[in-house]
Every structure is written in structure tokens, then in C-alpha cells.
Amino acid sequence: MKNLLKRKEPLTDTQLLMTITIGIFCIMYILAMVLLGGGFLRAQQIFDMLNDNASLIIVSCGLTIVMIGGGIDISVGAVTSLVVMSCAIYLNKGGNIFVSVLLAIGIGLAFGLVQGFLISYLEIQPFIVTLAGMFFARGMTTILSVDPQKVTHKGFLNLHNNKEIRIRWLGHRVPNGNIIPAEMEFGVVIALIIVIIVFLLLKFGRLGRNFYAMGGNQQSALMLGINVKKTRFLSYVICGFLSGISGYVFLMHTAAGNATNAAGMEMNAIASSIIGGTLLTGGVGNVIGTFFGVMSLTTIKKIVVSSGLNDPWWQSITTGGMLCFFILLQSVVLGRRQKRKNK
């Protein structure tokens, strides 16, 4: 036993930060169950959180990849919004569902390709490029339509209405004795599959490991024979692709396009990644952490609502507070580690 323990490697920065996030999420959720009870005791609470945030989870995965590679993409929310609007309009014009999916992915990929090219091959600062991308996508959304577009496409609505996966054994009993099954939207399944795929890509994919190498030390990555430009380009392409999927999942959730869709999503995604232990400097991070980052952000909002802080400002103030807590914690933890290493 002792030998076994001895052979275990110390936690890497990525693992440490992720463990902290998961730990704090669990503590937060258990505290909420004990102190607030109510909805938190039902499995449906977690499913609600997933249902509302499936597209945020997908976008955050893409952003995590970019951030691990040492970049940033602030266009993801706007691209999601543009995809939602375009697909809604296309479907309302009697489009085909399959083509609408291709349209979503196509738009996402187009943004990824162009932004990736500008950033990697023309060496323009990612912040500016993706800021322009964000402006462009937001502008295009309103050019397409300023008015909300409710999807009337029959086939899609069927999909939308029957999209829940009902899980009986996780349901809860209502006073009259019936069991209301827990409901999970189809988008959540997509999101979870994407989390797993991205996790595997980052852990076992050659490309994924190249992202870490590039983010850890770009010069070293180059010396080790990695094609840094291509790797960076691909990180943005994947991120754009995921934004496209995220947009379609968003549309499946709301079945309506709206110019203000996914407003502020980019910052939520960045916040989730950071809480999940991804460093903006690159080389450190994990999508599992990001997933729990999204869940932590949502949980704190739910807690604020449940604990009767009904004034509209408390949600974002507590979110900001939590963000501050995590950022400081990470800074202190990593700082202490660094010091110990130097000794």
C-alpha cells in the first residue's frame, strides 16, 4: 500500500485546480441541499441546470481548448446567437432540418477558419480579431432580423417538443402520489458527448497534447517540432465548430431566434473556464473542470434565488464574488506551488 502511494505522482496544476473546483461545487451543492432543501433535493434541479446551460457547456469546451493553447476567443457568444437566428429564419422559410444543422456547423466553422487564419498566419492579436468577429456576428444577427423569430417549422417543433428524455427513477413524488419523472433535453446529451470527446481529445489526441505544449511554452513547442501555426489555427477552428453546434442546441432549447440571444455568453464561458481551472496564460486546464465551472456558476445563481435574495442585482454580484474568490484562490495556490518548487 505504501509503495502504491509512493509511486503516485503529485497532482499537476491542471488536476489540482480541477479538484478544487469539483470540491467546492460539491460542498456548495450539499450545503444548499442541507440549508435550503426544496428544489435542491430533487434530481430535476440538476437536470434543469443542464437543460438551461447545454449550449454554454459546449461553447465553454471550445473556449477551453483555445485558452489551453494560450489564446482567447470572445466571439463565441455572438456566433452562437447568429447561428440561432440564421437557423430559425431558414427553418421558417420551410428549410430542411438536416440542412439547418449543416448551416449551423457551416457558420461556426466559417468563423473559426477566418479568425484562426488571421490569428495564426497573419499574427494579429486574438483579442482584436475575435472582438471584430463578435461585432460582425452580432451585427449580422440584427441585419437578419431585429424581431424575434419563433420557429414554426413543424418537423423542428416536433423535435423540440418531444426532445426530453424522461428518467423515471430519478423523478420525484408529488403530494398526490404520482411520480413526475426527471426530464433531460436532447441538447444535454449532445453537450455531455462533446465534453467527453473534447476530454478524450485533450487527453489522448496528438492534437490535444500539442495544444498543451503550445500553451505551456510556445518556443519550446516549436523546438520540439510542433507546427505551432497549424496547431493554433486548428484550436480556433474547433472552437468555431463548437460554437456552431452550441447555436443549434440553443435553438433546440428555445425554438426561437432573438437578437439578444446568448448575450454575455462569451464572458460566462470565460468565467466557467477560469473557475474550472483553465489559465488564460495557457497550458493548464481541462474540460471536466470547465463543465463543473458552468455548474458552479449556475448553482450559485440558483442558491441566490432560493435563499430569497430576490433583488435583481444579487445574482451577478454573487457571481462576481465567486469569480473573485476562485481567481484569488488559484493565484495563491499556484503562487505557493511555484515558490516551493523554486526551493
Partner: peptide, 14 residues
């Protein structure tokens, strides 16, 4: 950018 994300998130609510 990360540091100011905090105030960005909650500033308008404050």
C-alpha cells in the same frame, strides 16, 4: 482581462 472580468460581471448590478 481575468481580473477585470470580476467587475465586468457584477459592476452593472452594483
Amino acid at each position: 482581462m481575468i481580473a477585470t472580468l470580476i467587475l465586468y460581471t457584477c459592476g452593472r448590478s452594483i
